Amino acid sequence: MARIVVITHEYDELLKRRGMLRRWTSSYMLYDIVGELQRRKHEVVVARGLSSRPTGHAALLHVDATVTPDDYVDYGRSFPLCLNVAAADISKRKVSGAVLDANDGWNGPVIVKSNRNSAGDPERRMNRLARRAGQAEPFPEIPEIGEYRIYDTPGEIPDGVTADPNRSVERFVAEREPDGFALRFWVFCGEAERCTRYVSSHRLVKAARFIRKEAVPVPDELRQRRRQLGFDYGKFDFVVHEGKAILLDANKTPGRPQNLTNLLAEGSANLADGFEGMLLQHGL
């Protein structure tokens, strides 16, 4: 059995105590995968920060920040196998296939997003925890961007927004349905995966508010994009627009669905299979 180290930031909260009984739980999908790996007799150690730097057969870099600090990446590289060590930057401008190019002639609707994953909320949360501990903010100068905004044409974008490095201006490439809009979520760990298409009446599709869903195949161009971005574990959000798969968002610390016990049990077992497959590939 392998000794697996989960590398989190010093101010990450992989585990929290919640409810009247103060039981340990987590908002991350990894929580259930780790539980399954432990049931299979693997030893899992959480390295919170870089002070102790435990060793192991393999590691997973699970720092919930858009850009993983270099010292955490260097620690990950010290292991024979470290998942997501090559996926250190998941900013929208880097991963999205819909980023507006002034030379592409697009005159349709555009959407303005934060360039950071989850609008920079994880970094601001870690900054608050650092201040409470009397320490310097690990991610200073993280501005509040606010809600996504959709404009009918690029000409309606306010001055200065396109050049703002904290924002990502993208073509609004909707996957339209007669009764709404669709968005596809691809969750994977190694060779294990599931890909689901959600349809919603809202233009900004969320898995929590949908009309229907269905399992769909993963397009080859998304698999190629995953290899380019260096992802071993995570979640991709994408659409198929005019016959082309377009990646919109890539997350290396995906969240955990709440109140979906059966889905979590089935999904965590499958993704744990993928983790073990990578261990075998590396002779671990």
Rank of each mutant, 00 (worst) to 15 (best):
R197G: 03
L83Q: 09
G267H: 13
H9E: 04
T68N: 04
P154S: 06
G108T: 05
A215W: 08
H282N: 14
G19E: 06
T196P: 01
L37V: 07
E221Y: 03
M1P: 14
P80E: 09
L81Y: 13
S118T: 09
G49A: 05
K113M: 02
Q258L: 11
P257R: 04
G243R: 02
A102D: 10
P140L: 04
V6S: 10
L83E: 12
S168T: 01
N103R: 14
K41M: 05
T261G: 11
Y151H: 11
Q228N: 08
D71Y: 04
I142Q: 09
S26P: 01
N117K: 10
A65F: 07
Y28M: 08
S52I: 03
W24P: 07
L50D: 08
T66D: 11
L229V: 05
K252A: 03
F181T: 02
G97E: 12
G134T: 06
K94H: 10
Y31R: 00
T55P: 05
V187F: 10
I211H: 08
V95T: 15
N84K: 09
R184S: 02
D71V: 06
R184G: 01
S118Q: 11
C195K: 00
A88E: 13
R256L: 02
P165H: 08
W186R: 00
Q228R: 12
Y198K: 01
V45R: 14
G56T: 14
G76A: 08
Y233P: 06
E276K: 09
G56H: 04
R223V: 13
D101K: 13
Y11C: 02
A65V: 11
D32Q: 01
I145M: 11
V46I: 15
E175R: 00
I7T: 04
R93D: 05
H202S: 15
V205M: 02
Q258A: 08
Q281S: 13
R48Y: 10
V218Y: 00
F238N: 05
T153R: 14
D104E: 11
L37F: 09
D32Y: 00
F231E: 02
V112Q: 01
A272Y: 12
V44P: 08
T8Y: 12
Q135I: 03
V95R: 15
L222E: 02
L50M: 10
L204F: 05
C189K: 02
G120D: 10
G230W: 04
G277M: 10
L14I: 07
A272N: 11
N107E: 14
N84A: 12
D32G: 00
L37W: 07
F275S: 10
V173G: 02
W186C: 00
V73T: 12
A163P: 07
A215E: 14
N115I: 10
Y11T: 09
S91G: 07
D179E: 05
K235G: 04
